[in-house]
């Protein structure tokens, strides 16, 4: 019904909209690794933060909510197949090593696909452009080796 390229492009537009609205309205960067770390351990500028859950928890809640409620409508409208996670569950050690590397790498490298790849490249930040090139190349090498 819809070309897979058009669907992917629309998905990207939604991701970009979510990210730029967070910046336009709240002045925040939509980097998921940074938001997760900020939610769990506070961000560096959070000393003056108001009581209660930080804004980061609400953004993460939004991500969870989309995962919980949007699967069925997207399947009905765009014919998207439900996400099959069995491909990731075949090797638990690999899953755990991958998780640790993703968490560690994003913490040391100050960002992930969203923070560097969309928000950073979208600000033409040289740091983020370098980071994105590095994790894309490493991701390609790793995927070729492991699959």
């Amino acid at each position: 019904m819809f070309s897979s390229y058009v669907i992917a492009l629309c998905g990207g537009v939604l991701v970009g909209l979510g990210a730029i609205l967070l910046l336009l309205l709240n002045g925040r960067i939509a980097g998921i690794s940074g938001i997760l770390s900020g939610a769990l351990w506070g961000s560096d500028d959070s000393k003056t933060q108001a009581k209660g859950l930080g804004w980061q928890w609400y953004f993460l809640g939004g991500l969870l909510l989309s995962g919980a409620i949007m699967g069925a409508p997207l399947e009905a409208i765009f014919g998207l197949a439900p996400i099959e996670l069995s491909s990731v569950s075949q090797s638990t050690p690999l899953l755990l090593i991958s998780g640790v590397l993703v968490g560690l790498g994003c913490a040391i490298g100050s960002g992930c696909t969203s923070g560097h790849g969309i928000c950073g490249v979208g600000r033409l930040s040289p740091r983020s452009i370098v980071a994105t090139l590095v994790f894309m190349v490493m991701g390609i090498i790793s995927a070729v080796v492991f699959h």
Binding site: S4, I7, G11, G18, L21, L60, L63, S66, M70
Partner: peptide, 14 residues
């Protein structure tokens, strides 16, 4: 923004 962002990730296949 989290809902928009997450829906985009799902729709895009990421």
């Amino acid at each position: 923004c989290g809902v928009l962002f997450g829906t985009g990730l799902m729709l895009s296949g990421l």
